[in-house]
Design a protein around this nucleic acid. Structure first.
Length: 340
DNA sequence: AAACAAGCCAACCGCCTGACA
DNA sequence: CTGTCAGGCGGTTGGCTTGTT
């Protein structure tokens, strides 16, 4: 397969042979390359990426191999929809740390910095653009904190309440949080049913598909790593065990949520948590004025000037739904009240 | 059905840091 | 101290997919 090169042909690596001399490949990875990389790592482990690329017979830079492994091939990589809980956590952690994607990713088990970054750019920045304000502006940050995030909390709690109502007998008598079988798990498109260390990676029915666009959400591939796991406070300090990945945990409160996610974080001390109780954090202060946060540079958001049918005011994905007309009318009213 | 636009994301690039000789 | 190298990080982009006209 002849892969078209993208970007500059300038070679920046400091290997003894130039990229052209080594005939290095760029662009989308092929199935064969993926298998070669996975098999090599299964046998020899990660690290020393440049030599790894050579030893594995891959005509790729070490960087490229590392990136492919970390962002795609690693068995614990979770792919697919960013859950409400994850959205909330991303928003909160971003308000604290900014574009420290890898740091944020440490708090979202199985999510890569690249995926979080992409989420931010495609979803969050889209909203900022639609609101006609800068994503880094105080206005937008406050809008996130006092409007978007509380609404996410509401939605999470509503979902939890609805779910717990449906599973009353299962959850009422135990502090253990029930879990649902994950529908989006380690969707790297490969079957890791065998231990990776066994150097025995299989392809389901030979249906490997295009490596760059695997059937993430389809049933073409079966990932038997799918785990149904119970989360308990007792195991919340165990760190990022592989068991934590690929599960969808039903949370009853936002504290459960934060505990669950923080449990996978590299720090164990509660003092290091960005916020021990996000629910309080998102409570709108009594003195808070909406006009403080959702004003445009000209003072107010110009709702009339906005497209009435912009996607974020319609039914979109789960992150978009709370940006509905009702909210905007409510906010507009708040603004008017504040200006009186 | 075709053309176009927008969304999405995998993969690249350049820069930075730490380890080591 | 300096240079080299590996690894990590954040920003950017090209191309595929999906939606709209």
């Amino acid at each position: 397969m002849d892969v078209k090169r993208r970007g500059s042909n300038t070679i920046t690596t400091t290997t003894t042979l130039s990229e052209d001399e080594m005939d290095l490949r760029r662009g989308p990875w092929t199935v064969d390359e993926d298998l070669a990389l996975m098999n090599y790592i299964a046998t020899h482990g990660e690290g020393r990426w440049n030599s790894l690329a050579l030893s594995a017979g891959l005509k790729r830079t070490g960087k490229s191999c590392r990136l492919r492994w970390l962002n795609y091939l690693r068995p614990d990589v979770r792919r697919g929809n960013i859950t409400l809980e994850e959205q909330l956590l991303i928003l909160e952690l971003h308000t604290r740390w900014g574009n420290r994607w890898s740091k944020i990713a440490q708090y979202l088990p199985g999510r890569t910095d690249n995926e979080i970054k992409n989420y931010w750019r495609t979803r969050v920045q889209k909203h900022a653009k639609q609101l006609k304000c800068d994503v880094n502006s105080k206005q937008f940050k406050d809008t996130m904190r006092y409007l978007w995030m509380p609404r996410l909390v509401e939605r999470i709690q509503a979902a939890a309440a609805a779910s717990s109502a449906a599973n009353t007998t299962a959850t009422a008598s135990s502090p253990t949080l029930s879990t649902t079988t994950s529908n989006v798990t380690a969707n790297n498109g490969y079957n890791f049913s065998n231990n990776l260390n066994n150097n025995n990676i299989e392809v389901q029915n030979g249906k490997m598909g295009l490596s760059t666009k695997p059937a993430v959400m389809s049933n073409d591939f079966v990932c038997s790593q799918q785990v149904t796991q119970s989360y308990t406070p007792e195991n919340s300090s165990t760190g990022a065990s592989s068991d934590s990945f690929g599960t969808t945990t039903q949370v009853s409160t936002i504290s459960d949520l934060s505990d669950y996610y923080y449990s996978a974080a590299p720090v164990s001390s509660n003092n290091n948590k960005p916020n021990p109780n996000p629910v309080d954090y998102y409570q709108l202060p009594s003195h808070f004025s909406y006009s403080d946060c959702i004003t445009s540079p000209s003072g107010l958001f110009d709702f009339q000037a906005m497209e009435p049918n912009t996607p974020w005011m319609q039914n979109g994905d789960s992150s978009d739904n709370f940006w509905n007309v009702e909210n905007m009318l409510f906010l507009q009213q708040q603004l008017m009240n504040d200006n009186m």
